[in-house]
Amino acid sequence: MIPIRSVLGVIVSITAVVFLLSLTTRGFSALTVDAARALDVAATPVRVPDVTIKDFQHHTYTMRDNQRSTIVDFVYTRCTTVCVTLGGAYQSLQHAIQSRGLESQVRLLSISFDPTKDTEHHLAVYGQALHAAPPVWTIGTLAEPQSLAALLRTFGVRVIADKLNGFTHNAALHIVTPDGLLVRILPVENTDEALDLALQYAQEHSARHE
């Protein structure tokens, strides 16, 4: 006959463990910070700061476009790892936008998080290598570098310095509506889904503002 207290003790500890693990995994839905962030943003869109980005020709663009949806990513020009994949994804996105004639509805924005090293010259070279064509695809740095930290935090981008004077960082496609709301964070490979979503939000926006 097992005493009642033993059973209760086990039940209490199991309950406590389930509660703790549920907190850790966002209700058993995410094991990583990236997965949790993507779910949070999909559930509750986040208003992003309306920062100004300047490209290598000193043209400026705002985060909030008021007409086009933006697919945002964060890079640095010396990156030889994940930014290469991002670059490839953006090239195929640019090609899709141009061939389908969506230039007035979707644009691409690559923001460098290393404004000290990524000067206009570096941005120009980087852009040329990728055949980036503004205004479809803009690669730039923030006009106000002090807003970078808050911007990265809002988008959930975490940058850590590696031992070779470079950076390790997470990468994703961030879908921002014409109103400046971050509505979805998608893996880099999901370019088709990103484009469809961006287009959908742009069309909804223009329908509301007709």
Binding site: V10, V17, L20, L21, T25, A30
Partner: peptide, 26 residues
């Protein structure tokens, strides 16, 4: 000790806590 008979309840807690801090998000 009557709640923690044979240490089972306590060890469930220990396992749970260690597992929690193995999760990348944690």
């Amino acid at each position: 000790s009557s709640w923690n008979n044979q240490g089972v309840a306590g060890w469930i807690l220990v396992t749970g806590i260690i597992t929690a801090w193995m999760i990348p998000r944690a």
